[in-house]
Design a protein around this nucleic acid. Structure first.
Ligand SMILES: [Zn+2]
Length: 300
DNA sequence: CGAAATACCTGGAGGC
DNA sequence: TGCCTCCAGGTATTTC
């Protein structure tokens, strides 16, 4: 499931494939992939044809590239999106789960396939505006132009312009379970179910605890754990838990075997040996160690 | 406004 | 072997 490290791995691959190229054509094989596009796949195809592409930028799990018509081409992986340069010719039948295909010139790839089993991913054009804080919109470019489609997304933990002090305060204003707050992309972006569980475990905080009951130091520990885990995962190409995630070369990430709690319910805690528990939080599973992560207060 | 519930989608896994 | 139900999850939308 693509979260920040997986999105950044893909962004780096996409940057080499897309930056400086021209879109010669576009085919959309599944209308849901263009569901956020005004006018749907017909408009997307029409407006992208002939467009020149700039750098590939990422904020949280949202990626985009600025186009020569003044918009941003948004590219979101959803939970199973993959971008693959498969050297397809126009008219060639789509491969399994291929939802859209770009035809390119001026770069290393003649085509780029968007493959997305669960169709939670999306391609669409969005207008842009300068960031309010005057800093670059995201990772991958110095441009301040932030797409409207990502304007509600907070800066992420690997963004040098993230204000950790303000984020810490904002998190502790919420009475919601801390894990729900971490998953709220308008407060802090980049976390998904995997890295939220991992960061909470490392910080020794139970995900069901109300964020407002946590100390500034505890929230700082969670955020610092998130930074370190995401950086380590990124250095290993991300987490390929179930093969739905691969990079632009089709390679899986290798961080899955370093996960401490995600997907390990019922197994022994790698810190203390206690059997890991799982509860439902926000309709998502939360795996934790009842010994290392106390529901109320915690002293390790 | 914040926050919670709901819908979307597909295929793997498990029960019978 | 086939059919059924449950589960996974990022995000936009709806509801309160
Ligand atoms: Zn433990």
């Amino acid at each position: 499931m693509p979260e920040l490290p997986e999105a950044e791995t893909v962004r780096r691959g996409l940057a080499e494939i897309l930056a400086g190229t021209k879109i010669e054509g576009l085919e959309v094989f599944h209308p849901r992939t263009a569901r956020y596009q005004n006018g749907g796949s017909a408009q997307l195809t029409q407006q992208l044809s002939g467009a020149h592409l700039d750098a590939v930028v990422r904020r949280g799990k949202f990626m985009w590239t600025l186009t020569s018509n003044g918009q941003a081409l948004m590219m979101h992986l959803g939970m199973s999106g993959q971008f693959r340069p498969l050297a397809k010719q126009a008219g060639e039948a789509p491969v399994r789960h291929e939802r859209a295909r770009l035809y390119l010139s001026g770069g290393p790839a003649q085509s780029l396939s968007f493959i997305d089993q669960r169709t939670f991913g999306a391609l669409y054009l969005s207008p842009t505006a300068n960031t309010e804080d005057g800093a670059p919109a995201g990772c991958g470019s110095d441009s301040l132009l932030l797409p409207a489609g990502a304007s509600h997304i907070a800066r992420d933990l690997l963004d040098p312009h993230l204000d950790l002090v303000k984020v810490n305060q904002r998190i502790r204003k919420s009475k919601s379970p801390i894990k729900n707050v971490l998953l709220n992309q308008s407060i802090i972006s980049g976390f998904g179910n995997i890295y939220a569980d991992e960061a909470l475990f490392v910080a020794g905080v139970h995900g069901a605890r109300s964020a407002s009951t946590l100390t500034r130091q505890q929230v700082a520990q969670i955020l610092q754990a998130g930074i370190e885990i995401m950086e380590r995962s990124l250095s290993r190409g991300g987490t390929s838990f179930d093969q739905l995630y691969v990079d632009v070369n089709g390679s899986a990430g290798t961080f899955a075997d370093e996960l401490l709690v995600y997907g390990r319910a019922g197994q022994a805690c790698r810190e203390c040996g206690h059997e890991l528990s799982s509860i439902s939080l926000n309709k998502r599973s939360h795996v934790y160690c009842a010994n290392c992560q106390r529901p109320s207060r915690n002293l390790k």
